[in-house]
C-alpha cells in the first residue's frame, strides 16, 4: 500500500511562480500598450505583436537547437518583446523590429544562459544596438497617419536639449500626447502599471524612487525643470519596468537604492552634457554592468554574524 514521498522539508510552497510574476508584469504593461494604440494608432499594436512573436519564437528555436528545457512558458520572452517594442518609434520598419527582437533574445539573453543569467537587460541592449545600426529610423518621431493628431517632429526632450520649446505642456506629457517611442510617452499609463507592480510586490519601491528622485534633484541642480525631465523621455518606463529587471539589478535594499541613484546620475549627465537627447537606456546598461559589484558590496550582515558577510 505504501508509496510515501519522503522529500526533505519544507513541504509547503507559496503559490507564486516565475510564470505568474511575469504575467503580472504583462498585466502592468497593458495600460501603456492601450495608451500607445490610442496615441499612435494601430501600427503600435502591430509592432508590439511582431516583437513579442519574434522574441518567443527565437527563444523557442534557440532552446530547441541547444537541446535545453524550453522556457517560453515562463513568459519572460513576452515581456522582452513588449519592452523592446515600447522603446521603438512607431514608424520603425517591421524587419528592423524583427532583427532587434532576435538580437535581444539570442545575443543578450540566451547566449548567456537564458533567464536569470544575462547580465544586461535584453530589451535595452537590443534597443541600443538598433540605435547604432538603424539610427535614421530609430530617431524619426513622425506620428502615423491614423493617429489622433498629425503631429511630427522632435521629442520634447530633443527639443529641450536644443534649447527651444517643444510646445508640449505638463498635461500633454502626462497623457503622452507627444512624440516619442511608442510605449514611453503616456506617464499616466506607466504609473498605473508601476503601482500595480508595487501592490503585487513584483518590485519594491527602492529602484524607481531612487532613480526618479535622483533625476529630479539633479535636474533641479542643473537648472532644468525637474517635472519636465521626469515626465519626458523613457524615464518612467525605464524606472518602473526596465531598471527593476531581476536578473540585471541588485537584490539587496541598499544595492537597489545605489543602483537607482547611479541610473539617475548617468541619465542626467547624458541629458545635460551628452550629445544625445536621451540617456536612460545607456544609464541602465552601465549600471547593469556594475550590478554584481553592488550586490557584493551591499550584502547584509547576517543576524549575529561575527565576521562580516562582506567580501
Amino acid at each position: 500500500m505504501e508509496h510515501l514521498n519522503v522529500s526533505v522539508s519544507p513541504h509547503f510552497f507559496s503559490k507564486r511562480t516565475t510564470q505568474n510574476i511575469m504575467l503580472d508584469v504583462i498585466i502592468a504593461l497593458m495600460p501603456a500598450l492601450i495608451a500607445s494604440v490610442i496615441i499612435f494608432g494601430w501600427r503600435s499594436l502591430l509592432i508590439t505583436v511582431v516583437c513579442i512573436a519574434c522574441c518567443v519564437i527565437s527563444e523557442y528555436v534557440f532552446r530547441k537547437i541547444c537541446q535545453k528545457d524550453n522556457t517560453i512558458s515562463d513568459l519572460s520572452a513576452v515581456i522582452t518583446g513588449m519592452l523592446l517594442a515600447f522603446n521603438l518609434p512607431v514608424t520603425i520598419p517591421v524587419w528592423q523590429a524583427i532583427i532587434g527582437s532576435i538580437t535581444a533574445i539570442i545575443v543578450v539573453k540566451q547566449l548567456f544562459g537564458g533567464i536569470g543569467q544575462n547580465f544586461a537587460n535584453p530589451a535595452i541592449t537590443a534597443r541600443i544596438i538598433m540605435l547604432v545600426a538603424f539610427s535614421g529610423s530609430m530617431t524619426s518621431w513622425t506620428f502615423s497617419e491614423n493617429s489622433v493628431d498629425a503631429l511630427s517632429g522632435a521629442t520634447p526632450l530633443a527639443a529641450a536639449a536644443k534649447g527651444f520649446s517643444s510646445g508640449v505642456d505638463y498635461m500633454m506629457l502626462f497623457l503622452g500626447d507627444h512624440g516619442g517611442c511608442l510605449g514611453e510617452t503616456c506617464a499616466l499609463a506607466i504609473i498605473l502599471g508601476g503601482i500595480y507592480l508595487l501592490i503585487r510586490k513584483v518590485i519594491t519601491w527602492h529602484i524607481p524612487v531612487a532613480f526618479i528622485s535622483t533625476v529630479a534633484v539633479m535636474s533641479f541642480l542643473c537648472g532644468k525643470d525637474p517635472l519636465y525631465q521626469i515626465l519626458s523621455g523613457g524615464l518612467l518606463l525605464a524606472a518602473f519596468f526596465m531598471a527593476t529587471d531581476y536578473s540585471t539589478s541588485p537584490s539587496t535594499p541598499w544595492g537597489k537604492i545605489i543602483f537607482g541613484i547611479g541610473c539617475g546620475l548617468i541619465t542626467i549627465l547624458i541629458r545635460v552634457w551628452g550629445s544625445l537627447p536621451e540617456g536612460v537606456s545607456y544609464s541602465i546598461l552601465l549600471m547593469n554592468i556594475l550590478t554584481p559589484y553592488i550586490s557584493r558590496l551591499t550584502r547584509q550582515k547576517p543576524l549575529g554574524a561575527l565576521g562580516g558577510a562582506k567580501s
Binding site: 522529500s7 513541504h11 507564486r16 522556457t71 515562463d74 536569470g116 531581476y246 537584490s251
Partner: peptide, 25 residues
Amino acid sequence: EAAVPKTTACINCGACIAHCPFRLE
C-alpha cells in the same frame, strides 16, 4: 498537498534574501 513543484531557473528576484530571518543570501 504533497506535490513538490517543478524547479526552474533562478531569476534573481531576491525573494530568498528578502525573507530570510537571519539575512542570509
